[in-house]
């Protein structure tokens, strides 16, 4: 795969659009996933992923072959998404003002297992609470198994900055998870309580 990818990259750098189309085919999922987790919206994620590939295609001549291509590509996607979030921040309604996006108060199920959608919703809430750069670092850390060095390179930050950002973000998410749990437990108790009492 690495060799094929290198050949595609050389061909694409020489102006072969079909070679770059092969790269798009190979990397569409990781790029889309990053955009989707960053922007929390399928439509915006599609636009961001398309824009990422377009930017990569236009600036392919500047790509350094000593660098891992996936890191370079995801770096473009992450920076684009961070910019989009910052741009839209003023127009976005804060989560506190969105009662419909809160954790549902009802009991998740007879076996206290959260449904798939509810789990996704909780994860979305965790990510949305993070600042855009921390969010990108968390996504690369969990989904792409990137090393601190790779995350640092992708986000143009130092390794120590990434370490402290991830430390802070994971702590923040664990605290938020605890507060989500505490909201769920009273609801669960309420449902199990006998009407007699």
């Amino acid at each position: 795969m690495q060799n094929t990818e290198a050949v595609w990259l050389v061909q694409a750098q020489q102006g072969d659009q079909q070679a770059f189309t092969n790269i798009v085919e190979a990397y569409q999922k990781p790029v889309y996933n990053l955009c989707y987790r960053m922007l929390n919206n399928a439509e915006d994620a599609e636009d961001a992923a398309q824009e990422t590939f377009l930017r990569a295609y236009r600036s392919l001549k500047q790509y350094d072959h000593n660098r891992q291509f996936s890191t370079w590509l995801l770096s473009i996607a992450a920076h684009y998404c961070i910019d989009q979030i910052r741009k839209n921040r003023m127009t976005l309604i804060s989560l506190e003002d969105q009662p419909d996006r809160e954790i549902p108060d009802k009991l998740p199920g007879p076996e206290s297992i959260l449904s798939k959608n509810e789990v996704q919703n909780r994860m979305r809430l965790l990510l949305e609470k993070l600042n855009p750069t921390d969010r990108a670092a968390v996504i690369m850390y969990y989904w792409y198994d990137y090393s601190y060095e790779e995350i640092a390179r992708s986000l143009s930050l130092s390794e120590s900055a990434i370490k402290s950002r991830l430390h802070r973000a994971r702590k923040e998410m664990a605290r938020l998870w605890m507060s989500q749990q505490s909201k769920l437990i009273p609801a669960e108790r309420k449902c199990h309580e006998s009407p007699v009492f």
Binding site: V24, Q28, V119
Partner: peptide, 15 residues
């Protein structure tokens, strides 16, 4: 949580 996939035809839309 699995990786999210784009809708079918992503490459065509890119072209």
């Amino acid at each position: 949580t699995p990786i999210a996939s784009p809708a079918v035809g992503f490459t065509q839309r890119w072209q």
